[in-house]
């Protein structure tokens, strides 16, 4: 057995020796990690939806009723010339009617009999690369002959962006507080572990143990607590996420809001948790050891 294997084994033994303290520490770390995880997931989902909305949303330019097909083609060419425009989709009157039916889904009965009334105008959906260009593009689209109205659902996008900004700051604030709390808890547990091993540490000192030899088992103890808490939190949050995903994504309760599929988010959560667990464990142990282990 090498010295490092021995010290890792010692760290593991310490965990068992401090059984109830270890379990209560891990439970608290799990709770803070879960709260943190929920905020991260909300943040990730809001960002994902902002990104999707930015791509999907575009300006809708309505075409005057008596515009001919040739004129429509000409207008399309002019739209293509505008800087920052990424895609142009032409929506005929019939397609506009189908789109309205789609949007109302189960309640589309009130559109019955309106098929031939021509009430929905033809339009162009003008998509763009950057949200910042929207005002400029809108001004140029309005100048094109045959366009009588340009609609831009700015409020939805701006609301989502401002939510994402708030979520960002909130996550940063809550995350920092939870991180400090977790480090404090681990550090406190290790402090107690050091205290209960006081005699052992003193004996080790007398027989010539270097500080690194004394410290390593405690660091290992902290790291194991952090990583095990991370894995437990990961399992719990995965179960909740999959459950919520299935329950909400299949209903229309959230409107346009879509959850990120679990398959594309699980490794991010796992990676974040394990790194965070290691950081909390090692840093938490190290700060309490520094103070308590003077030669």
């Amino acid at each position: 057995m090498t010295t490092n294997t021995y010290l890792i084994k010692e760290g593991y033994t310490n965990l068992n020796k401090h059984g109830s303290k270890t379990i209560s520490t891990m439970l608290i770390i799990c709770a803070t990690m879960l709260i943190l995880g929920i905020f991260v997931i909300i943040f990730q989902n809001v960002n994902y939806n902002v990104k999707t909305l930015r791509l999907e949303q575009g300006l809708q330019a309505f075409i005057e009723d008596k515009t001919t097909d040739d004129e429509i083609e000409y207008m399309k060419d002019q739209l293509h010339l505008i800087d920052g425009v990424s895609e142009i989709i032409y929506m005929s009157k019939a397609e506009a009617f189908e789109d309205a039916k789609d949007q109302f889904k189960d309640q589309d009965y009130f559109l019955d009999g309106l098929e031939n009334l021509d009430i929905f105008p033809a339009s162009f959906i003008v998509k763009f690369e950057n949200i910042e260009d929207v005002d400029n593009i809108r001004a140029q689209v309005e100048k094109i002959d045959g366009i009588y109205k340009v609609k831009y659902n700015a409020s939805t996008i701006e609301a989502v962006i401002s939510i994402s900004k708030v979520a960002n700051y909130f996550l940063l604030g809550v995350g920092s507080v939870l991180l400090v709390v977790s480090i404090f808890i681990i550090s406190n547990t290790i402090k107690l572990a050091v205290y209960s091993n006081k005699r052992e540490i003193m004996i080790m000192r007398y027989i010539g143990a270097k500080n690194s030899f004394i410290v390593k088992p405690f660091i290992v103890e902290g790291a194991i607590m952090g990583v095990v808490s991370a894995l437990i939190s990961f399992i719990l949050i995965s179960i909740v996420y999959v459950y919520v995903y299935v329950a909400l994504n299949s209903s229309y309760a959230l409107g346009v809001f879509k959850f990120i599929p679990y398959s594309t988010i699980w490794y991010q959560i796992l990676g974040l948790y394990v790194l965070l667990g290691l950081f909390i464990g090692i840093f938490g142990s190290a700060i309490s050891l520094k103070k308590y282990l003077k030669a």
Binding site: R199, E200, M202, I203, I207, G208, K210, A295
Partner: peptide
């Protein structure tokens, strides 16, 4: 300070109260 453990390795200490684990 970092060399103190090496000094202590040259001296085997035996105490009245044994100081065993």
């Amino acid at each position: 300070k970092k060399d103190i453990p090496f000094l202590r390795r040259k001296i085997g200490f035996v105490f009245q109260d044994f100081r065993l684990l």
